[in-house]
Amino acid sequence: MSKLSPQIDCVIAGRNRLGESPVWSVREGKLYWVDSRGPAVFRWDPATAATESVAMPQIIGSIGLRRKGAGQLVIAMQNGLHGLDFDTGALTFLTDPEADQPENRFNDGRCDRHGRFWSGTMNDTRRDPTGALYRFDGDGRCTKMRDDIIVPNSVCWSPDDTVMYFADTYREIILTYRFHADEGAISDPRPFVETRGQKGRPDGSTVDIEGFLWNAEFGGGRVVRYTPDGRIDRVIAMPVSQPSSCVFGGPDLDILYVTSATQRLTEADLEAQPLAGSLFAVDVGVRGLPEPDYAG
């Protein structure tokens, strides 16, 4: 573990093309994340410093834990939702709501506290607004929740389950929805944060125990903590220009793990950012919330 500052450690010095979707497993005491364009799924054990990986056949958007047990994940890829047994590498097809849209792929996603997995799609050929947000229930049902999406990101919820956050990265906005937890419904979309005019765009997010949103600004080289009413509370400058997503982990859920990317960086950029594509741990002085499991 190389020390960068009093706040930030590089825990895995790598070259992920597009590190994304970090998920801390309380059950295992390990961190999972993906290189979307590797494509591969990684598992890191901070107790032993061991890192394992499983190559995947397609671009990966996001992953979530499953209630089936240790090493069991749900994974959103180019052609829909799959189950992954990390220890064997076995994939099990679950569903593909966009089999008729070959240019689309899944991107960011997360499990809610009722065991549902939410993930959005995007056009990976052009940045046309052909994407949608889906809710996958534990019984296998798939429901389209909204459409007209360019690049979906920042799927997460307030601690009291009354607010869902969602970003359309290329529209440079994070929205809030009123979240109806029992039904898994969303309503009343409102602007939460607009990043137009800033260097970076909103990528992956997580929420801490105090209800503040932490957002990785892709291209902006920073992670920003927002108050529940959308004001900037804190800015953490990262040693890379493309932080991509974040999640709380560690035994006390008080470490913010941040993924990053190398895609579209020039040779000069990579020379200036030797840790681009690495995984970072940030001591932010606040705890997060445990990541829920997918019930399917």
Rank of each mutant, 00 (worst) to 15 (best):
G184Y: 09
D252E: 14
G184E: 07
T130K: 14
D124T: 12
V34Q: 03
D108L: 05
G29Y: 03
P6T: 03
W33N: 01
P159L: 08
A132E: 11
W214Q: 05
R196Q: 10
T125G: 12
D112P: 04
A237K: 11
I150L: 11
V284G: 10
R234C: 13
R146K: 13
G296E: 05
F93L: 03
Y257S: 06
M1P: 00
F218I: 13
E271R: 14
I186E: 01
D87L: 05
C111L: 01
R43L: 06
D269T: 09
G296F: 02
A185G: 04
Y257M: 07
V282M: 07
I255K: 13
K144M: 15
G29A: 05
G140V: 02
M145R: 07
L18Y: 09
Y32R: 07
Q263P: 00
A90R: 15
D233H: 12
D252P: 00
S241F: 01
D254M: 07
T206W: 07
A132T: 10
S119L: 09
G197S: 11
V34P: 12
R135W: 05
E194P: 14
P292F: 06
E28V: 07
A132P: 00
A216W: 07
T162N: 12
R43V: 01
D9L: 10
A132Y: 11
S62R: 02
S119D: 10
G115A: 04
I8Q: 06
A49N: 14
P97N: 00
E103I: 01
C10T: 11
G69H: 02
F212T: 11
L18Q: 04
L91A: 02
V34I: 15
G83L: 04
T51C: 15
R126S: 13
I60A: 11
S2A: 10
C111D: 03
I149A: 08
D108K: 05
Y134F: 15
P102Y: 04
G38I: 08
Q198L: 14
G200I: 04
P202N: 00
S2D: 08
F93G: 02
D148Q: 15
G288V: 02
P102C: 00
D293V: 13
P57V: 02
R201F: 12
G38D: 08
R190S: 13
C111S: 13
A47E: 13
W118F: 01
D148G: 07
F212N: 14
E183D: 14
M77T: 08
G250E: 03
L270I: 02
W44F: 12
I174H: 06
E194Y: 00
G64L: 05
A40H: 12
D233L: 05
T95S: 15
H180F: 09
R222P: 15
R264C: 12
L4K: 08
G80D: 06
T95R: 13
Y294S: 01
Q58P: 12
R15E: 14
Y170L: 15
W214D: 03
D161I: 00
L18M: 11
L18G: 06
I150G: 06
S154C: 12
N16I: 09
E271G: 11
D147P: 10
T51Y: 05
F106Q: 01
S25M: 01
R141T: 15
V163G: 03
R127E: 15
W44D: 02
G250S: 02
R225G: 02
M238H: 08
T88C: 00
